[in-house]
Design a protein around this nucleic acid. Structure first.
Length: 268
DNA sequence: ATGGCAGGTTATACCTGA
């Protein structure tokens, strides 16, 4: 059986509840991973999603910032989360899907403005976060198991994951040091980029467009910050990947759009 | 090269995002 996993940095789940419900209705993913929900667990609109069929939920949230959630139409097992860099800041949640796939939902720190860890604590945090998650995935998840890792990783690793490779080399999200660390994380687990699996590396691909552009669509200065990775046992079962660019044009949109991947779930 | 917008909060200015 095939399942569709989606990831979306929603930038306030309460403000954009109607957009999420619209997306769920129109695209019917089996599982949706959200980031930047910006809601404590008690304020998360759990019932609205449960009423539409996404009854199984794993939610982590704090006031104002961050926050992640997994919404599923099928039961979630072994729900958990890790804290990173000694901050309990709700950037990770995981669960196991019925076919045995372990799903990880990450919101990696954005990293601030200045790409120098010596003067910018936020960038230092981002780099340390990447080191810690890489070591943890290597150690705690070393056995070759079917896993999917999704989220707003806040890094556009490839040349054509940004609108101008040269102009963004010094811009946080595309600097060489971040890209190296994300690539190390990917290599450490043998992770395969499920979207680039279907789209050649020389084709431009974005999942985020700044709110500050006068016309995001016309200027098209995007970055691919949102990712879906799978471990080797799942690669042969990959069926489809899609980035829902049109969602950036919806009324009062998030600056990120959903990314969807369809793959064999491991259930008969 | 710069600045541009958006969301949330012990709000009406300031932090975050990227």
């Amino acid at each position: 059986m095939a399942i569709t996993v989606a990831t979306w940095n929603i930038n306030s789940v309460r403000l954009r509840l109607d957009l999420v419900l619209r997306f769920l209705e129109e695209h019917r993913p089996d599982v949706l991973c959200l980031q930047e929900t910006k809601a404590i667990v008690d304020a998360f609109p759990a019932k609205a999603f449960a009423d539409k069929g996404w009854r199984h939920q794993a939610i982590r949230g704090m006031k104002s910032y961050n926050g992640v959630a997994i919404l599923s139409r099928q039961p979630l097992a072994d729900v958990g989360s890790e804290t990173w860099c000694a901050k309990d800041d709700c950037r990770h949640v995981f669960a196991t899907l019925p076919g045995g796939i372990e799903l990880h939902n990450f919101y990696i720190p954005s990293g601030g403005d200045v790409p120098d860890p010596a003067v910018n604590d936020k960038f230092a945090h981002k780099l340390a976060f990447l080191d810690e998650t890489t070591a943890w995935l290597k150690k705690a998840r070393s056995t070759p198991r079917p896993m999917v890792l999704v989220g707003d990783l806040n890094i556009a690793p490839l040349e054509h994951d940004v609108w101008s490779h040269k102009q963004l080399l010094d811009v946080v999200s595309h600097t060489p040091v971040e890209v190296e660390k994300l690539t190390a994380m990917q290599k450490a687990g043998g992770w395969v980029d499920a979207v680039r699996h279907f789209v050649p590396a020389d084709r431009k691909l974005y999942s985020w467009w700044s709110y500050r552009a006068q016309d995001w669509d016309a200027s098209d200065r995007g970055r691919r910050l949102d990712h879906v990775w799978v471990t080797p046992p799942l690669v042969a079962g990959l069926q489809q990947a899609r980035i829902l660019r049109e969602a950036r044009g919806w009324t009062q949109p998030s600056d990120h759009v959903p990314v969807l991947v369809t793959l064999d779930s491991g259930t008969p």
